[in-house]
Amino acid sequence: MTAYVIRRFLYAIPIALGVAVIIFSLVHIAPGDPLSALVPADAPSSVVERLRRDYGMDRPVPAQFVLWLGRTLSGDLGVSIATGRPVAGELTRAVANTLLLAVCASLIGFPLGILLGGVAGYFNGRAIDRIATATAITGVSVPHYWLGMLLVIVFSVELNLLPAMGMGPGGSSAWSWDWTHLRHLVLPAVTLSVIPMGIVTRTVRATVAEIMNEDFVEALRAKGMRESQVVRHVAKNAAPTALAVIGLQLGYLLGGSILVEVVFAWPGTGFMLNTAIIRRDLPLLQGTILVLSMFFVLVNLLVDILQTMLDPRMQRA
């Protein structure tokens, strides 16, 4: 097991490096001189040349990558063009806000998905299975940004029950655990939970239905085991697959919340990405995507290790 964990960690290093290469090249696939994004159009050419030297952009691309990687590893993600402040500082609060939203969406979506999927798989083919499956398909088919708008219209515009945007009264972004703040969390969290709910339902349903067809379930029943105990055995066998899909979805929530954050003006990483896109603030775009994707690599790593602990048969490279 220890050997596996070490191997899995070592394997994550080239992946993380590859991710860094892709993110580094984002600036280079962007149209125009990468420097033109950093300096105003009317800057004198001497200033541009000095900046080019300072940023190491007069060197060959591989050397630039090493420079950039070194700066990034030491926590320097560059300076936002729009605000002039360091990207790393801007990101800290945004990441915390996105995590808050993602965790709350998980707390709604995952239990619901496991419940729906488990019930549907257990009662495979019956009416309750069809209802759960229909719910799941609707969940994965609905454009979540549109669902967010619908919820705003129903609960904010028409019923005037919940706030439509922001994460606190008066657009403040200071969080505290009371009802005035939690009210702001309800709609975005529900909106964000719909996709993982649908995906978890579908995966758990398929897994449970497959396990229910296996001989050992028949054998357990044949030897007279109570149905509640049989369910326990099935659940235990379905757990690793359920965990894997949940882990992946948690990672997706971090990156996938951008559209929901934009709809609800939730001041997280997604909202920040949107700002970066509108203002063509490439350092901010790069930094945000780097942090989010490293989170995703880490989550994947943890899920793989946890999954192997639950089911040692799964040991893979």
Binding site: P14, I15, A16, G18, V19, L26, I29, I258, L259, L273
Partner: peptide, 24 residues
């Protein structure tokens, strides 16, 4: 396949937004 693994390390929405965001 190892090259593909690297792209797998991004949530799909994020990768789409990263590339589209850079390209404009």
């Amino acid at each position: 396949m190892r090259a593909m693994d690297v792209f797998y390390a991004f949530p799909s929405v994020l990768l789409a937004i990263a590339i589209a965001g850079a390209l404009g």
